[in-house]
Write a protein that binds this DNA or RNA. Structure first.
Lengths: 360, 360
DNA sequence: AATAGTATTGTAAACGTTTTCATTATGTGA
DNA sequence: TCACATAATGAAAACGTTTACAATACTATT
């Protein structure tokens, strides 16, 4: 093959490509041609900038900017190179506490030049499997899951691919997945203990559905443990089941509190959203908090400090978990060795405010 | 480094890669080999299932399941094939109304077997450019942006790639981008008109920062328009600037309402979060709502119907926007023709509740 | 000036799919 | 039975990068 032939075939190839290409979007080779260098150099310019001469580098970057070149990470990821995306699977996004977690997580990952593929499964673990598969198809570099209840199929898929996994929000002693979270059981225990310390023994609880929700389950268990430890009975009519929704919680609380002869002196809520509903119910019924009834929540969401009366609750460090998780995952992605099975427990903090008081 | 060292390190590296790769993750060709068919047939099995014999198809799918095969969409996207991901850029995730939007958007896209790459720019339009570039590097099939304020660089990048773009949340008459949203100006106008209709003329407003936030800007403009239409003056001390935060709003409202001689009879809040803060401030100060002061918000967030007194506000259909946007983008991805520049305006709805009343 | 050593760049072969085109089975009407 | 469409499959060439290796240019030494 002569020199001329080579040139011709290359030109033809280039033309061919040019035609097929999506309108106008220049590729790495277009940049290379215009800058008068080879494709390899352009590639190195992005991936190992130190290995190309500063002069050349600047020229290439300038050319790339002129052409509006945007590299294709999908093509890069074929070479075992990371895709630069991280998956995050949450039960739902529309939930104060997860929103905070997600915000912190994505913001921190953006710092690391990575983006987040996000998906929610609505507390349906079967759907979670599909979601994880879908994320894996997109070649995520790592994945974070909320909670410790997960389908074994999902875990299996992740194990097989050997990508870093992190479970968030709840600690899990028994599973072998690393986690960053709080001890939800102790959150429930602490806030209950607080009520007991204040002299309450007529205690009602309002928790969301605990099926497929290990966070709520642990919190409730913590609460029950505290009650049991002090031999306090929980009558069935005071074991209220109520969804994560202020309006519904308000309704349920009105129902609970209407019979004033047989009302509890303290109400322990599975989360602050429910507690808000209870506080609103008290206002509606003219019941004084904390004089007539103490109300406590779990979560310390953004309204809890300003609501009247300010809510006694347990602070769960959502932002910190999100941030830490992002850092941890990036570290695990970069450092292939450190696949230590770590359980990070961030302590919760009882925040005593105006909504809880001594039993009169 | 000696020659021997180099060789050793290279061998190690290669082994390492080989391990990761072959570790357990089977590829399309592994499935093909095991099923005794060619790679092409396996590929078709996923992309054009009708073109392969049912018997063969079942065999292949069974084999794939046995092997735990997960396809690599990055490799597919090299062929101009879509990546199956859609970008969503929001100012922030940790915000009731965006969370709702995001939830609806991602849920709807999951229905279409697509996942969402999400990123937030914290009301920083320069950062938005980087984010959009980063999303384009991941070969998103389409993108949704919140609001109509965007860097021209960003728009240019998107135009060049010719991917479907949709702006959400706010209508934009002047730009040439299609949009799905509400008329924020009329939301502000309506709620103000409502107060004026109730006989109020001593009106204060509390809005968040309107720089880089066209939604807030439009709402405030609508409010000012309504006031002007009725020749109502807005004294500077009643033009309160306050962040999107209940606690801060409460502080600002306490400051505003403390001087009871010179207090407004109605307070118009740029969003419900601020309105909650105002309501809490009134409770703290013992000011009766709506007898002493009427309070109205914009947004109709989840607490607004249950807070005491229930908040008069304007309903913004966040879920519907998210859902519609997802459908629209998928339609635009599939149907290359329909790139009509459409502006969909979903009407807002004034929701009158207990927090607003006639001026005494 | 020649040489070794190093820094920089180029060439071409991957990467794991999809797709075009060719090829082989399968059925159809004479 | 034969040609003749048709359906199903296979072989191999993309797709846009990255990277191992080769080649070249430069630097410092002698």
């Amino acid at each position: 093959m002569t020199q001329a032939d080579i040139t011709k075939s290359q030109v033809k190839k280039k033309n061919n490509r040019r035609m097929r290409q999506r309108k106008g979007a220049p590729g790495l080779l277009d940049v290379a041609a215009r800058a008068g260098v080879s494709g390899a150099t352009v590639s190195r310019c992005y991936n190992h900038p130190d290995s190309v001469q500063p002069k050349t580098r600047h020229l290439i970057l300038k050319t790339a900017a002129e052409l509006g070149y945007i590299r294709d990470r999908a093509a890069g990821s074929l070479h075992g190179r990371r895709s630069g995306t991280v998956g995050l699977v949450v039960p739902t996004i529309d939930n104060a506490i997860f929103a905070e977690l997600i915000e912190a997580f994505t913001a921190q990952l953006q710092q690391h030049d990575r983006t987040v593929l996000i998906a929610s499964h609505n507390y349906n673990l079967d759907q979670e499997v599909d979601i994880i598969r879908s994320l894996l198809e997109r070649r995520i570099d790592a994945i974070a899951l909320v909670g410790r209840d997960h389908s074994s199929v999902a875990i299996q898929m992740l194990k097989l691919r050997d990508i870093p996994v992190l479970t968030l929000w709840n600690t899990c002693d028994e599973t072998d997945l690393p986690s960053i979270g709080t001890n939800n059981a102790s959150a429930g225990f602490d806030v209950t203990q607080h009520c007991i310390d204040l002299g309450h023994s007529r205690i009602a609880v309002m928790f969301p559905d605990i099926v497929n929700n290990d966070r709520a389950r642990d919190r409730k268990q913590g609460t029950l443990d505290a009650l049991k430890a002090h031999d306090i009975e929980l009558p069935e009519r005071w074991d209220v089941h109520c969804p994560y929704d202020t309006a519904e919680a308000k309704l349920a609380a009105v129902h609970l509190l209407k019979q004033r002869r047989d009302a509890p002196s303290a109400i322990i809520c599975g989360n602050d959203i429910i507690a808000y509903g209870v506080l609103y119910a008290c206002q509606q019924l003219g019941i004084q908090v904390p004089d007539d009834v103490s109300v406590v929540g779990i979560g310390d969401f953004s309204h809890s400090s300003s609501i009247e009366p300010a809510l006694t609750t347990v602070r769960l460090p959502a932002r910190r978990i999100g941030q830490l998780a992002a850092n941890k995952l990036v570290a695990r992605i970069l450092d292939t060795e450190s696949s230590i099975n770590e359980q990070i427990v961030i302590p919760t903090e009882l925040v005593v405010r105006a909504s809880s008081g001594y039993h009169q």
